[in-house]
């Protein structure tokens, strides 16, 4: 029914406060570049291929505006999303304490979607850790509390970017296998818990 759903194997949405580096991460993923982008008003579409074990997939990526006021608009983009990347800036405490409003968005996404919490701008603390305002442990704990996966990254140096992308692809493949089993079982009147509830957390940094 929906052209967008049919064409893309997975819809990814980026959420997080203003200036935590959402657009920068998308640019790093899709173009391999690092530059200072314009502020995002509304949302921007892009896509990226993922080479799975057996086949190649295409994922659509929606980058959203982070300012709180835009929340009322971003719910629209969350529809049919199968993967949410929720970002905060490890040098900006507010962007971390603010996170719940993005987790609240998950009510609009697919039931079986998976969430990856991402601490950004790791490069900024390389020289001096004084700038760090959110510890690694805090990030991990938040991810744990929210049933999500976790990374700290730098879009500038590319640190953990590849790992992040592979995790997205991995989880997607596992998820779709589960769904297939679930689908078959559903047809035979079996019930199993959804993937997100019984999947073990994987914490990386």
């Amino acid at each position: 029914m929906n052209e967008e759903e049919e064409k893309y194997d997975l819809k990814i949405i980026l959420l997080g406060s203003s200036k935590v580096g959402k657009t920068t991460l998308v640019n790093r993923l899709t173009q391999g570049t690092f530059e200072n982008p314009e502020q995002t008003t509304g949302a921007t579409f892009s896509k990226k291929k993922y080479q799975g074990e057996l086949q190649e997939y295409t994922f659509s990526i929606w980058d959203t505006a982070g300012e709180e006021r835009f929340d009322s608009l971003s719910s629209f983009y969350c529809r049919n999303s199968g993967c949410e990347l929720i970002l905060y800036d490890i040098t900006d405490r507010n962007s971390f304490t603010n996170l719940d409003r993005f987790f609240d968005k998950l009510q609009y996404t697919n039931e079986d979607s998976f969430v990856i919490l991402i601490g950004t701008k790791l490069d900024l603390i390389e020289e001096t850790s004084k700038l760090r305002k959110v510890t690694l442990e805090e990030g991990k704990k938040k991810a744990n509390d929210k049933n999500s996966y976790f990374f700290e990254i730098s879009s500038k140096t590319g640190h953990n970017i590849q790992e992040l992308w592979e995790t997205v692809g991995d989880l997607f493949e596992k998820n779709s296998q589960k769904n297939e089993i679930k689908h078959r079982q559903d047809n035979n009147h079996f019930q199993i818990n959804s993937f997100t509830n019984n999947q073990k957390k994987k914490n990386c940094c």
């Binding site: 929906n2 052209e3 008003t41 509304g42 949302a43 579409f45 608009l73």
Partner: peptide, 21 residues
């Protein structure tokens, strides 16, 4: 409509800044 390109997907760029960006 058929392609599911909704006005929400581009409207903010067009209308929110009077096309300035």
């Amino acid at each position: 409509q058929e392609q599911s390109v909704m006005s929400q997907m581009y409207g903010s760029r067009w209308f929110l800044t009077i096309f300035a960006n």
